[in-house]
Amino acid sequence: MVSNHVRLIKNGRLELDIWRLFDATTQSIPPHDSHWIVKFDTWKQNIDEFQLAKYPIAILISSDSDLSNLPNEFLHDDLLLGIEFIAIDFPNYTDGRGYSLAQLLRNQYGWRGELRAMGDVLIDTIHYLARCGFDSFLVKQGHDPKLALKAFEAFTVHYQRSYLKPELASE
């Protein structure tokens, strides 16, 4: 029963996910308590307020977000403090934009913090995701998270040198 809910892979282990997505239709920013994920646009529009917030938040980037127009230093140090993690949404696992967005966040914008894959995250895509810089994964319902953990080792050799070699952090 519980195992059904434990589908977050982080630091090479399964964890219970307690973050929730803020719905910006009624209020512009979430109430002052912890574990809110806000959409990228909501965050951008209210950056100042989020900087004053008491609890860190997480940002959710949709797959159709255009990051190309952002200044390279948009994730400057002051802002980083208030961000627990950045998540990229996979509305469907065949929408591969998230992989490139992850690369941009990691390499162009220098995001070193947690990068989470959310949405249609499959046992079968975890390996690619990890190589592109994701380090936490909310495995979709119906896909056994334990098998997903094993998928990090689906391939032990790789050709593309500028991408990571997935490893289980616990090792």
Binding site: Y93, T94, D95, G96, Y99, S100, Q103, T125, H127, Y128, L129, R131, C132, F155, H158, Y159, Q160, Y163
Partner: peptide, 13 residues
């Protein structure tokens, strides 16, 4: 061939 095989970023174009 090697570069494109199982390319992690471009598997779902």
């Amino acid at each position: 061939r090697q570069w494109s095989m199982l390319h992690p970023e471009f598997a779902f174009l």
